[in-house]
Design a protein around this nucleic acid. Structure first.
Length: 637
RNA sequence: GCCGGGGUAGCUCAGUGGUAGAGCAGAUGAUUCGUAAUCAUCAGGCCGUGGGUUCAACUCCCAUCCUCGGCUCCA
């Protein structure tokens, strides 16, 4: 160790004796809000306030209000939770407990599952630990000693974790009588935790592998202040009101019937209209971009699925049936008939690229525990296309698709994230082809300056893919668009084209969807708009409300005029007060109300009330129709 | 599929080993009313399904289906 340390804070540099801690240095500095400082960073590396500094460098302090600070606070709260659990349930074994987005969790191997009542007990115990202001302490141990330590405690998961760490020394953190293997850093003491809450219990496999033992995971969250925690919990409540399953019922869009079967969506008139509108939009956008519409059968012979590789690689997700002693597979993907269309005649290089588009309905046997409203179903319709092109067209085709995705997401106002998924273990095709395809996808992402993450081993069995993910109301992300390269299917199906020199060449295939599954997309869309759809997508665009039955005839006349102009209009002639009708129309989130009373009848006008505004504007019906048309065309929200 | 919660009227939810409740929605009648709920009356339930325990089960036990939150998997 050096005899002195050179530490710079902001622009000033100072010499310290070794063994000094960031906490000691903090005390010397006159500054406000030192109580907000919960950790530090030395040369950008997070460190504890209480652990001795071992090297010279640039020191920054981490506030609990920063993202990094919050992460440390949450991680430390998970340790306090583990301590509480160990105290209450001594036979529980601890595993891991990281901070995650919006909170933390800790996984325990418990002889019996935790109940919601246990959660309350754990919370109370945590509060006591926080009140007793236990300091966090750090120690570095040679790995053998650490293993010995955990062996004596019977904490075999910790031993397994140490085994996977290469370092000669491992760090341990303690507060009170609880010691955990941990990289740190941590808050100075349990007293620093001001606001936390345990939110849910769930099963989780050890190391995320379903072949391993199922552990008990407790989720929680912590914030710098009680107010922030309260605000977060309120936000969660608000988000739950946007849940598409709740809105689907309230707005009468769709249902899922136990009688009909799980994971099967039944679209009611308003939901079916919404769906129709999105599909019509899709068809037009595809035709604009040089796609051709095709339609294939719902079931295809089993031999064809064997040929494509689906039978070997995707069988567990497929449904099968037998017709006249011949086995058929219900399609889980749309590619096969598209291949057959391509093969139906000889193709020239002049024909390429060929882009087949199908709103294809597929069935997949999804495990029962994963079904989730519209977002995870067993029957769904993809806005699917297969592009067959020459190898040198691959890049421009991928660029075209990414731009297509960008355009469409822009129209709906979605923010999205992109991922590049590489070769999984269970897959077909040569390494060279996988490499070529992965490179092509990555190059396109880079050409368009897209931000993306790499998802190692998460590709389809036939090729790598770019996935575009959208978030639901509760910030869970769902894969929607995907772009997948495939060299295998053209090979398996013997697809060729005649090149300019007269030789037969193998085309490359791209599988791609823009919305993904229409069901899933609509689920996310409902949450995105909280059910208040922009005019062009609203199943009911205008509702005509009468004040007394003296205006019934006039209301019918106005509704007819709107209908003639393709406005989706409903009429409310019920014998109810206008306040009641307005309340109901509001709750149904209809974009426009037209309110008709004696005044409107007399002046031959309509009183228009726009969603979200509490005032009505009187105008001529033609003027109203004109403004509607304008808003629909602009697809504005 | 796995772990844990939950299934009571169309919806949202109370309830209890001893004849099943509310609000909203629905039907009927009254009210003709100007921007977020008019009043009254009526009707509505195999308490998810199948077994078991009990004199008696919506309630306790077992199984099963569906659903919710996670995990794994996925568009």
């Amino acid at each position: 160790m050096t005899s002195s340390l050179e530490i710079s804070i902001q622009d000033t540099s100072k010499t310290y004796r070794p063994g000094i801690t960031a906490g000691d240095i903090l005390k010397e500095i006159p500054r406000k809000n030192t109580s907000e400082i919960i950790a530090a960073q030395l040369n950008g590396k997070p460190i504890d306030l209480f652990a001795p500094i071992t090297e010279s460098g640039k020191l920054d302090f981490v506030s609990v209000h920063s993202a990094k600070g919050l992460e440390i606070l949450r991680h430390s709260t998970s340790h306090v939770m583990a301590q509480a659990v160990k105290e209450l349930f001594p036979d529980v074994k601890v595993t891991i407990g990281p901070a995650i987005e919006d909170g933390f969790y800790y996984d325990f191997d418990s002889p019996r599952p935790f109940t919601p009542e246990d959660l309350e007990r754990i919370e109370s115990r945590m509060k006591e630990i926080i009140k007793s202001r236990l300091p966090f302490r750090k120690a570095s141990l040679p790995r053998e000693e650490a293993i010995q330590f955990f062996r004596e405690l019977g904490e075999n998961y910790k031993i397994e974790l140490i085994d996977s760490i290469a370092d000669e020394e491992v760090s341990m953190y303690s507060q009170g009588n609880f010691t955990d293997l941990c990289r740190g850093p941590h808050i100075p003491g349990s007293g620093t935790i001001r606001a936390f809450k345990l939110t849910k219990v769930a099963g989780a496999y050890w190391r995320g592998d379903e072949h391993n033992r199922m552990l008990q995971r407790i989720y929680g969250t912590a914030f710098a202040s009680k107010d922030e925690l309260k605000r977060y919990l309120e936000l969660l409540e608000e988000a739950k009101k946007r849940d598409h399953r709740k809105l689907g019922k309230e707005l009468d869009l769709f249902s899922i019937s136990e009688e009909a079967g799980p994971g099967m969506i039944i679209w009611h008139p308003k939901g079916a209209m919404l769906r129709y509108l999105v599909e019509e939009f899709e068809r037009k956008e595809h035709l604009k971009r040089g796609y051709q519409m095709v339609v294939g059968p719902q079931i295809l012979k089993r031999e064809l699925w064997e040929k494509s590789g689906h039978f070997d690689n995707y069988r567990e997700n497929m449904y099968f049936t037998t017709v006249d002693e011949t086995d058929y597979g219900i399609k889980p993907m749309n590619c096969l008939s598209h291949m057959i269309i391509y093969k139906s005649r000889i193709r020239s290089y002049r024909d390429l690229p060929i882009r087949y588009f199908e709103l294809g309905t597929v069935h997949r046997h999804e495990k029962s525990g994963v079904l989730h409203g519209l977002l995870r179903v067993r029957q769904f319709t993809q806005d699917d296309a297969h592009i067959l092109c020459a190898p040198d067209q691959l890049n421009s085709e991928i660029l075209g698709i990414i731009n297509f995705v960008k355009d469409v997401m822009g129209i709906f106002g979605f923010e999205y994230s992109m991922e590049l998924s590489t070769r999984p273990e269970k897959s077909i095709g040569s390494d060279e082809d996988w490499q070529r395809a992965t490179t092509a996808l990555e190059k396109a992402l880079q050409d368009l300056d897209c931000e993306y993450e790499i998802n190692e081993g998460d590709g389809a069995f036939y090729g790598p893919k770019i996935d575009i993910k959208l978030k639901d109301a509760l910030a869970r992300s769902w894969q929607c668009a995907t772009i997948q390269c495939d060299f295998t299917l053209p090979e398996r199906f013997g697809l060729t084209y005649v090149d300019s020199d007269g030789s037969r060449k193998r085309p490359v295939m791209i599988h791609r969807v823009i919305l993904g599954a229409v069901e899933r997309f609509l689920g996310v869309l409902i949450e995105h708009y909280s059910g208040a759809f922009p005019l062009w997508l609203a199943p009911v665009q205008v509702i005509v409300l009468t004040i007394t039955d003296r205006t019934d005839a006039y209301a019918v006349e106005i509704a007819e005029k709107l209908k003639e102009q393709d406005v989706r209009v409903e009429l409310d002639l019920r014998n109810e007060k206008i306040g009641f009708k307005i309340r109901e129309a509001r709750n149904l989130k209809v974009p426009y109300m037209v309110i008709l009373g004696d005044k409107e009848l007399e002046n031959q006008l309509v009183a228009v009330r726009k969603r979200g505004q509490d005032l009505t504007v009187s105008m001529d019906v033609l003027q109203f129709i004109d403004s509607l048309r304008h808003e629909i065309e602009s697809r504005s929200f």
